Simulated scan of single mutants.
Amino acid sequence: MSSLHGNLSGNQRRKMKSAARLYAVQALFQMEHSAQTVEAVRREFLDHRFGATYEGQEMLDGDIDLFDRLLEQAVNYQAAIDQLTDRALVAKWPLGRIDPTLRALFRAAGAELQIADAPPKVVITEYVDVARAFFEGGKEPKFVNAVLDHMAREAQPEAF
């Protein structure tokens, strides 16, 4: 753990990791829709999201290391992550047909499952929470849970 996080409580570190996951999904979504490079989007998030005040609300401070690793892994291994996601989706719903926000979420979660720093159940719970943030009251969180469970069992079978 870096010395930067040394004085933080466990709860503060968890919130920062949760924020980093949310920001990674947003950044991956933005990259897909704007054709910006990973470096341009990364810089924008670090300059304008992490701990910034936006429209009178203070944005959460995120775990920059986790955010960087998620973006890097998702971009460098996108084809493999997308294939993993496709295998977890039902045949009628290939990755290209699902909501772009969900696509970004599956890429960030797939990246984190491959990094394997956190237990799969933690990763699944965190990204289901991200889905709830984007799709209030919808069926998407249950869908995300099912897809990520399948992805996790394939990516880390020893963890189950």
Results as ranks from 00 to 15, higher is better:
Ala152Asp: 05
Met16Asn: 03
Leu102Arg: 15
Leu89Val: 15
Pro119Gly: 11
Val147Arg: 04
Asp149His: 06
Trp93Gln: 14
Glu158Cys: 02
Asp47Ile: 01
Phe29Arg: 14
Val130Thr: 13
Arg69Lys: 03
Ser18Thr: 03
Leu22Tyr: 12
Pro141Leu: 07
Val75Leu: 08
Arg42Gly: 04
Ala35Tyr: 07
Ala20Phe: 13
Asp129Arg: 02
Leu84Thr: 13
His48Leu: 06
Leu46Glu: 14
Glu112Gly: 00
Arg43Ser: 01
Leu70His: 02
Ser9Asp: 11
Ala152Thr: 09
Ala108Glu: 11
Glu39Pro: 00
Leu46Thr: 03
Ala91Gln: 11
Ala131Leu: 07
Tyr127Val: 02
Met151Asn: 05
Asp129Tyr: 00
Thr85Ser: 14
Tyr23Cys: 05
Val41Thr: 12
Leu84Ser: 14
Asp63Ile: 09
Ile81Asp: 07
Glu136Trp: 01
His48Gln: 14
Phe143Ala: 00
Ile115Val: 02
Asn7Phe: 04
Ile98Asp: 13
Leu4Phe: 01
Ala91Ile: 08
Phe134Thr: 05
Leu70Cys: 08
Ala111Tyr: 05
Phe143Arg: 03
Ala35Phe: 09
Leu102Met: 15
Lys121Val: 09
Arg69Asn: 01
Ala74Asp: 14
Val147Gln: 08
Phe143Cys: 00
Glu44Gln: 08
Thr37Ala: 09
Ile81Met: 06
Ala79Lys: 07
Asn145Met: 02
Ala80Tyr: 02
Ile98Glu: 13
Asn11Pro: 02
Phe50Glu: 05
Thr101Gly: 14
Tyr54Gln: 07
Gln26Cys: 11
Leu22Ile: 08
Lys17Asp: 05
Pro141Gly: 04
Arg103Ser: 11
Asp47Lys: 10
Gln36Trp: 00
Phe67Cys: 10
Val90Cys: 12
Thr37Phe: 14
Glu44Thr: 11
Gln12Thr: 06
Gln26Phe: 03
Ala20Trp: 14
Lys121Glu: 13
Met1Glu: 01
His48Glu: 11
Pro120Asn: 10
Ala155Thr: 06
Asp99Val: 03
Val75Tyr: 11
Gly110Leu: 03
Asp82Phe: 05
